[in-house]
């Protein structure tokens, strides 16, 4: 005997009803079980401590490196040109004095 009407057969499956007091029992048990409160202060401290030891993502390192490089480069740019000026004047002086 072939049974291709599997869905029809499965649809005949009955499910018993839950006992009428099941929901109330769950609610009552929960009342006495209490609730886990998140430890906000401890979790914040823990997060800070972890952030000190966590190795940053490579892309963050590269981006930070580029930004720092540009900032330092811009700051020292003026200094370099001043150095250049000093150097050239030094050469000028020496050229004038020795040659």
């Amino acid at each position: 005997m072939q049974h291709d009407n599997l869905n029809e057969w499965l649809n005949k499956r009955m499910t018993p009803k839950a006992r009428p007091d099941l929901a109330e029992r769950i609610i009552f048990t929960a009342l006495h079980a209490g609730q886990e409160k998140p430890h906000a202060v401890w979790s914040a401290i823990w997060k800070d401590v972890m952030s000190m030891v966590v190795i940053p993502h490579p892309s963050v390192v590269v981006a930070t490196g580029i930004i720092l490089g540009v900032v330092i480069g811009m700051q020292t740019g003026e200094g370099l040109s001043m150095l250049e000026q000093d150097w050239s004047s030094f050469l000028d002086v020496n050229e004038g004095g020795w040659l």
Binding site: T15, P16, A18, L22, A30, A33, Q35
Partner: peptide
């Protein structure tokens, strides 16, 4: 019930699942 095939186990399962979301929301 459809997962366990037993009414008493189904009750325990539902109770445990609801208690879990109460205790660890």
């Amino acid at each position: 019930f459809r997962m366990t095939g037993s009414a008493s186990e189904a009750e325990d399962l539902v109770q445990d699942a609801f208690l879990k979301i109460w205790q660890k929301p």
